[in-house]
Amino acid sequence: MNFSWDLLLNAVTSGIMLGGFYAAVAVGITIAFGMLDIVNIAHPAFMVLGAFLAFLSINTLGIDPFLSALGFAAIAFVFGRYFYRAYYHFFERRGDDSLQGLAFFFGIMFIVEISLVLIFGVDYRLIDLPYLATTYEIGIVQIPLRLAAPCLAGVAMLVAIQFYLSRTFTGRAILAVAQDLEAVRFVGADPIRTKEIAFGIAMASAIVAGVLLIIIQSVEPSIGREFIGRAFAICVLGGMTSLPGTLLAAMILGIAETMTSTFFGPSWSPAVAFGLLLLTLAFKPSGLLGR
């Protein structure tokens, strides 16, 4: 382990950039799990699906992934609404079976992952965007646009969702759902429809996160599993229902991982999220901003 200020500063910088991307991954978990109490462990699998959609769109259609992300997100939003309706019909309405619901998402995760394996194989895929090839240098700190752009996009998405939640009627209804299902009826919103929309947003965010993922790193179908621990660790550390908390926790995890990667080797970084998750669950289950 060789320490230098140069390395440290660069690790923190790339940690922040990574954190911005992690925020994009975790925002959907915070909505689905934190606010709606739906343990969507298939979220990262849908993210990987998004990554492969981006791969297809640039390589077969020649459409810029940032542009196609918007289209795919819209489709994912609609799909997410129907998906939630099915989940509600089969599990929430029945009431007592969290076991079945968990196994359901586990099965969905496998179906998505294995389908991708069957279509694309197990090779790593990467996309190359020439306009992101630049690397800015500020003093000794290097800022590759390939990392900075996904970070900005991720943070922008989180901020946009936060605005939507706090400024619109439906958004406030979603926040009310997070507090208490009965409260929503008082507000005058249909709780099922409210949850449908929220889940649609979460699903759309997974697809967008996938586009950002394949810009940052090469992707193979089972890579989503590395993000389950990360996304849930961020959600819990961030206090379950708070998007600012999610952003903060994402930054913390990003920095912790790049530091680990810089000073102990990149193969250790998947373990960081698990450690963080266990520590949070064991000592501060209410999260960073929790009382």
């Binding site: 799990f33 343990v39 462990i41 969290s98 968990l102 599993r225 590395e226 389950i228 621990g229 849930f232 660790a233 819990v236 193969s267 250790w268 998947p270 373990a271 999220a273 698990f274 450690g275 998750l277 266990l278 669950l281 064991a282 289950p285």
Partner: peptide, 24 residues
Amino acid sequence: LTLRLRGVFFSIATLALAVVLQTL
């Protein structure tokens, strides 16, 4: 570490555990 909390946290921890054991 996780069973004092709701059951889903245990489930999520086991998912992450598989990843971390593989890393080890």
